[in-house]
Design a protein around this nucleic acid. Sequence first.
DNA 1: TTGTAAGCGTTATCAT
DNA 2: ATGATAACGCTTACAA
Lengths: 335, 335
Amino acid sequence: MKSRPTIIDVAERAGVSKSTVSRVVADDGQGVSDRARERVEKAIEELGYVPNAVASSMRTARTNTIMLAIPDITNPYWPEVARGVQDVMDEEGYSVVFANSDWNTHRERKYLEMVRRNRLDGLLINPVGVSNDELKALAVPTVVLGLQQGITDFDIVGSNSYTASKTALDHLVSLGHRRIGLIWGQRQGRVKGPRLSAYTDFLRDAGIEQDENLIVSMPFSLAGGVEGMGRLLELERRPTAVYCDNDIIAIGALQAANNAGLRVPEDISVTGVDDIFAASTTTPPLTTVSKPKYDLGRQASRFLLEHIDQGTPDAPRTLLLSCQLRVRGSTAPPG
Amino acid sequence: MKSRPTIIDVAERAGVSKSTVSRVVADDGQGVSDRARERVEKAIEELGYVPNAVASSMRTARTNTIMLAIPDITNPYWPEVARGVQDVMDEEGYSVVFANSDWNTHRERKYLEMVRRNRLDGLLINPVGVSNDELKALAVPTVVLGLQQGITDFDIVGSNSYTASKTALDHLVSLGHRRIGLIWGQRQGRVKGPRLSAYTDFLRDAGIEQDENLIVSMPFSLAGGVEGMGRLLELERRPTAVYCDNDIIAIGALQAANNAGLRVPEDISVTGVDDIFAASTTTPPLTTVSKPKYDLGRQASRFLLEHIDQGTPDAPRTLLLSCQLRVRGSTAPPG
DNA sequence: TTGTAAGCGTTATCAT
DNA sequence: ATGATAACGCTTACAA
């Protein structure tokens, strides 16, 4: 049971030095005679030689591996983002290590340490607890996924939910709605939410009277949506439409409306945000604001690769991809 | 801009040798005096030393990293499996690299090569094209996810869909259905499907007349489900219930039934397999066979870790986790 | 208990 | 165009 052939075995077999073998493997178009190249390639073939990336990393201080740290791959929002990341990294010959922080700062910190120990080349992160400074202390090329309060020194790639929310609200208003509820998702004390300000700003600009009672704050879950819609339906003056902070909440709201014997959209309209798969399979299918999830992953990856190759640029950029309103069946003029 | 401190820096600062530092870092409870340990720990602290895993791998020939190769993380079935893998690997200090083959054998082969180059410690794979022999040639601890035809030399962790299908069929029959359609998912010429045999076997055992027309084969997609249900509804003698090969197909079938003006479950019952998130949010919610996706990931990981730690066992095992029937709203006695 | 020293498989520098 | 040779940072016999 002899172990894997090394560059030396190849060199011996080809009758050249390690250096030459290394040169043909690197394939930089460096100076190697055709004759030498041929013999080396033949030897590689015969021995089934596969270069040892670990040894290479040792010398070059590059691992060609990055980490993607997100809260939870099980949340229907993330797989597409992950796929975007995966695809561009793959093209560029990078491996991507996945990490699920589970909204747990402690776990998240462990991942940062893993990045250091394993000398990963970069980090793509949707931070749930770590600060701008901690990220800075990591001293590794980093791009942040999603708009985050307090992130000032890194490139950020997110989506323009402020504008997107306005589009959705505009859709509702143009249908004739004036009394619009908001089920707003609780983030753990971070971003107060472009979506909340979009709501307030929009209503003000549209000259619609604001009503504190129409705003409820709920966890990002089906149950949160159910509960939130429940609250809204208890109101004396019910909303005719409800704008939910994400699709999962919206689906919960849809269910609550159904359970209360209301028809959607005839009796009440509902909209969500994200456009996860399940949003298209409800009855009625959910009108929602589609986030460019896949592209978000791709763009963030491109930025990260730039940082890795060309060093972190002087001024951090914020790239906001635009969202798209997908009008489906859950919205209609007020009954 | 000095680079990261190495074990030598720590040694110097603590006034000991590298070996000693290495010993306290390894923390094997090896012979190290309390005094030495203290000084080393202090030095590590002060310097902010983080061991270089790459260098370590170089010596130990272990990377503490495995690869999870699946067709597509975007398919709602996989994220939970991935999460299971992630969680146990995390506990054991392993990183997991993700790879999406996209049902492309070529891509899949590239991933196998990546496993070699990067000297990964193990592979968890749902093979889409590579053969048992190719996997064997990899010579890396491997566990296969999902029952696969032709895999003879590896541990397999899957779910008992044969039994599960029978349970679902039994549910339908006990509700009174006798004419049960099957929308069967096309795999790329691999497993003919325990689900198909389950169907045939079950009907035979239940003394129900078989009808070729009730079996249609479709791609694993929403469109496939729509189309499949369409075919079934064109039949002179329509089925009163349809058993679908997975939830996505079932959801498509549900939509087709709705579009045809049929009520589910009053006019026709529908069941799926997998229990993806969207299955619980349709109207009516889908009765389905729930696969132990998370556990599947966990179990497969445990097997893999055994192989890594104790070497590949003599006889490959096949572990079939059992599925659970989830009766929801899409099934009822025939109208 | 501690230290010395020999690798691990590459890449990069410097001669030739 | 090619070859010696010195790192890279760690682990692990073996010696002391």
